[in-house]
Design a protein around this nucleic acid. Structure first.
Lengths: 132, 132
DNA sequence: TAACAGTATGTAATAATATAACATTTATAA
DNA sequence: TTATAAATGTTATATTATTACATACTGTTA
């Protein structure tokens, strides 16, 4: 059995908020939403976010400076992330495709670099927006 | 023959700076460096950067908020970018691997989403840093 | 050439995102 | 229990990016 990480108070508050959200959340929007729970300063939010990213409970969508909860129950793939982003409605969803992750995890080129992590963001139009 | 885009004065100044740089440059560092050429305000920099990204002369490294010149002479691949980033020395290089780009350009999953663009960032240790 | 459209520029102000520095408290484990 | 790591609280500030508005340049076409 693996040891289960126990989230701290602030981490839990912030994770729950992001997890409930149907869309990626930005740091200051998170701050606004948790002020009634006693989290008053940006740094408190950023510290929790950093930790949550580190343990794989959330991911940062780099192109949007926003955070979403990991969709994989096991959260083992925080080092191998892929997202699809609709450029019209800004809907973001995590891609879990084992072929893709296998392909990328094993990717190596002539650079001699050892990759320990990757992040992939696809952009396009989602089904809904495409048919408009 | 395709029509060749002609960069404007500010675009040229900023592109030349980024192109000469051995590492990704951040917007305010660019600003600092071009002030002697008469570009005084952040917005002037951001506007040029936006355009240069749009025409594929430079790419934004999303995880670093920094910009590098496109390494592909033709600059046709601004919609399909991949980078390797050393987490120790922060060296960044563009990956041009036709198998990879073919694989990703053709990637499709069950979401029904039509992807028109992607950005991939690999992280790890470069050869030099690995051997330290 | 005049009128127009599109693109680029200049400038000031401000919004949005993120971190530094320092003091204190809580949790974990030796 | 004592030490160590992790988390918290607070203030200030740094960094990244955009809004709003006025002006000028470039190329096209009537």
């Amino acid at each position: 059995m693996e040891k289960q990480y126990t989230m701290s108070k602030n981490q839990k508050i912030i994770f729950d908020l992001i997890d409930k959200s149907s869309e990626p959340m930005k740091a200051y929007s998170i701050l606004f939403n948790v002020q009634k729970k006693g989290i008053k300063a940006p740094l408190q939010v950023y510290r929790a976010l950093d930790k949550l990213v580190e343990i794989g409970k959330i991911h940062k969508i780099e192109s949007r400076n926003a955070f979403i909860a990991c969709q994989n129950s096991s959260c083992q793939i925080s080092k191998a992330t892929a997202f699809s982003i609709c450029e019209s409605c800004e809907n973001v969803s995590e891609i879990s495709n084992s072929k893709l992750s296998k392909y990328l995890s094993n990717f190596a080129d002539e650079s001699g670099m050892k990759y320990s992590k990757y992040n992939l963001e696809f952009f396009g139009l989602c089904k809904k927006c495409k048919s408009k």
